[in-house]
Amino acid sequence: MHLHDGYLDAKTALLCTGASVVGVGIAVRQVRSCLEARQMPLLGLSAAFVFAAQMLNFPVVDGTSGHLVGGVLIAILLGPSAAILVITCVLMVQCLMFADGGLMALGANVLNMAVVSVCGGYFVFRALKWMLRMEDKRATVFAAAFASWCGTVLASIACAGELALSKTLPWSFIFPAMANVHMLIGVGEGVATSLIVLAVLRNRPQLVAGIKADGPATWAGFIGYGLLVALALAVFVAPFACPWPDGLEAVAGALGFANKATPHSVPAPLEDYRLPWVGSVTLATAVAGAIGTVIAFISAYALARILVPPLSSARKHAPSGD
């Protein structure tokens, strides 16, 4: 999902960099106030762990393989603020040490994978855990699978929005392509994440959410992240998803580069493309997305049922490896 330089234009890159600087800034403040000194090296080691885990190839169908992204996984293990820092550092090292991912697109990559994916995924995780009334281990596996699926899909939607805002590709094309592909990729991410979380839970349960975050500062952070993700989606996605063709221009005007946007280049699906199916493509994708989400939700539940059989509830009181 790495964006390379050359696909984003200057204004999108700047917008993304601004948003990601705000997100990482909140994360740094949060981590400073919540993190104990002894947990400091854990951040660096977790970043190295994410990188090493990304090099493990999970076999998919003969010959092809995929790898973990790990944003939501690390958010479940360390908490969202630490996860944002960790993934940001991973992306920086990938860019500055291995030339993977663009320098100008670094802001966009951080926004997609470290802020939107991690915060969105973690929010889903916490919400599910809060709503579910089932055995704790199974609830965690279920929530982890569904949350990392959501995180992957959210990141791809943000990525599609950025590409569309740069006018590299029309929204009516890039959105279904990215969303559909990542709804499939997300299945792998969800299964891998839940398997890993379960294995950590079985071996060392006290490591999950190792960085405890409570108190008013955390709530301020949650509100900050929520606002940021909402704003990012509003800027990058809403102009295309809503039916008014003026949405993007209003945003562009408010931010001061309306003069660059000519009426023709505004990607209003019905104007630019006269193919009959394109007009409803956002709607069709939204419907497909809703169905996909329901399927993913049910599959995540099934996965949790398979991975954590009722038998384990009988052994619940057995001493866990400490």
Binding site: Q39, L42, L45, S46, F49, F58, L68, V191, L195, N203
Partner: peptide, 25 residues
């Protein structure tokens, strides 16, 4: 089993990283 094995390796890697972080501290 391939996925389960890989997931176990990954989990083990995280646990070892956390232990190493303690020692580094």
């Amino acid at each position: 089993l391939a996925w389960r094995n890989l997931a176990n390796i990954t989990a083990q890697l995280f646990i070892r990283s956390a232990d190493r972080a303690e020692r580094i501290y």
